Computed example of a mutant assay.
Amino acid sequence: MATTGLTRGMGSFFKECEHAESRWSKCPHEYKIRYRNAAGRQTEESGFATQDKAKIRLAEVYHARKNSPQSQRKAERIQKYGVMHFSDYVAEWLKGQRDLSPTSLRNLDALLRNHLLPAFGSRRMGTFDHKVVEAFIQSMERNGIGMATQTNVFISLKTILLDAHRLGLFEDSPLDGVKAPQYDPKRAAIPSVTQLQQIRTAGDDAFRLVTDLMSGCGLRNGEAYAVNINNIVADDVYRVTEQVNQATSAYARLKHRKVGEYRDVPLPARTKDSIEQYADTYGTVDGYLLRNPKDITRAIPHHVIDSQWRKIKKSGLADIPEGMVLYGLRHFFASNCLSNGIPITDVAEWMGHRSVDVTFTIYRHLMPGSISRAAQLLDLGLAT
C-alpha cells in the first residue's frame, strides 16, 4: 500500500490494493485519506472515486481545522511561547507548581540553577527537539555528572518540555526516541545483616529507632523522623501518614501523596518493639516520639540524625559499606523483601514509589529470579 503526502499537516491519500501508484488513476479501487483530526487523533475516510475528490476532502478538513477556534488558540500560544527564552518560560511555569513541597522546590531550583539554565537559559522554546535533548544528556555524561543527578535533571527537563508540548509548541514531542539517563542500581550501597546490626547500635536510642524504621518498614528519612505510636494500626502494620520536611523541620504530607493520604507498611516485631520501648523510655507528645532536643513541642530536625550518621562513619565504630548513605537503610528493606520472594508490586506500594517501574529500575538486580531458575521451575511444573 503506497501513500502520497500533501502539504505538511494536510494528511495523505492512498489505495489499499495491489496496483502500483502509477496505475491508481486507471484501477477501479477507491481512494482513502488519512489525517489528524482536531483532537490530534489519526483518522481515516474512504469512498473517494478520484484522486481530486480525495484531495478536496483533505483540503476541507485541513482548512476547517486551521480555522477552528482551537487551532487559532494554538497558533497564538505558539506565537507567544515559541519565541520565549527557556529561562522566561520556566519562570512562568514555576508559578503554576503550587503543589510542590518546599523541599521539592528547593531541589528543583538547584537543578535549574546548576544545570538547566546554564545550558538552555537563552534557547528559544520552539527550537527544542530530540537532538537538542540527546546532546544535553551526552554533555552531562562527558562532564562526569553523577547518575542520580543526571536522572533528576532529565526528569525536570522532561516535565517542562511536556508542558510546552501540551501547549502545542511542538508537532512531535522533543522527547520522542530520547534514551533517558539510566540510574545504576549497583551504586546503591546496601549493608549486610551483620553490618546493619553494628550500625543500629552505634548511635543513641533515637538513631537506633530511625535505623529500625528505615530498614524494617522501608520508610524514608523524613517519614522515620515523624514516627507516631498511634500509627501502629495492627500488631504487624504501621501506617505512614506524614514526614518531617527537611527545609522547614515541620510535619508535611507524604511524597507523591495528597494531604491526608497514607500508606500501610509491614511492621516487623523488632521494629514494633523499638517503637514501644522508645515510647516507654522517653514518652510521647501527641503520639510523636522523636522531638527537637531544644523544644519538645516541635519535630526533630533532619540534621540531628544526619550529624550522628556522619560521626558514626568517621569513628569506625561500625562496618559500613563503602559509599553507603543513610538512605541505604531503606535499600536494605527492599533487598530483604525481594530476596525473600515478596512481589515487587507490593514492595513498590510499601515504599511509596509513584509506579512499580521506579522500583524495578532501582532494585531489579536484587530480585532472585533468573532465566535459568525460571526454566527449572517451569520444568518442574511440566513434569507434574
Rank of each mutant, 00 (worst) to 15 (best):
T3I: 09
T4D: 05
S12H: 11
F13Q: 00
K15P: 00
C17L: 09
H19S: 07
W24M: 04
K32E: 03
Y35Q: 05
N37Y: 03
G40E: 02
F48M: 09
F48W: 04
D52K: 15
R57A: 10
R57I: 03
A59V: 01
A64M: 13
R65E: 07
N67E: 11
N67K: 03
S68P: 07
D88E: 13
Y89L: 01
Y89I: 02
G96P: 05
R98A: 14
S104M: 04
D109H: 15
L111S: 08
N114M: 12
N114D: 11
N114R: 14
G121N: 06
F128C: 01
H130P: 01
K131Y: 12
E134C: 06
Q138F: 08
Q138A: 12
S139K: 14
M147T: 12
V153L: 00
V153I: 14
V153C: 05
I155M: 03
L157N: 00
K158E: 05
L162Q: 14
H165T: 10
H165N: 13
L169H: 06
F170T: 01
F170P: 00
L175N: 07
P181E: 06
Q182E: 15
Y183V: 12
K186T: 14
R187I: 14
R187G: 15
A189G: 08
P191Q: 01
T194F: 12
Q195L: 02
A206P: 02
A206R: 13
V210L: 05
V210P: 02
T211P: 02
T211S: 15
L213F: 10
G218D: 09
L219C: 14
N221D: 13
A226Q: 09
I229P: 00
N231A: 05
I232A: 05
A234P: 02
D235G: 03
S249I: 04
Y251F: 15
L254Q: 05
R257E: 08
R257L: 06
K258R: 15
E261S: 08
E261H: 09
D264Y: 11
P266A: 10
D273H: 13
S274N: 08
S274P: 03
I275R: 01
Y278I: 11
Y282D: 03
V285F: 13
Y288W: 15
L290C: 12
N292E: 06
P293R: 11
K294S: 15
K294H: 15
R298Y: 04
D306P: 01
I312S: 04
I312H: 03
E322L: 13
G323C: 01
M324L: 07
V325E: 10
G328V: 07
R330C: 12
F333H: 05
A334P: 03
S335C: 10
L338C: 09
N340C: 06
N340R: 12
G341Q: 08
D346H: 12
A348D: 07
M351Y: 05
G352E: 00
S355N: 09
P368D: 09
S370F: 13
I371F: 07
A375L: 10
L378Q: 04
G381T: 01
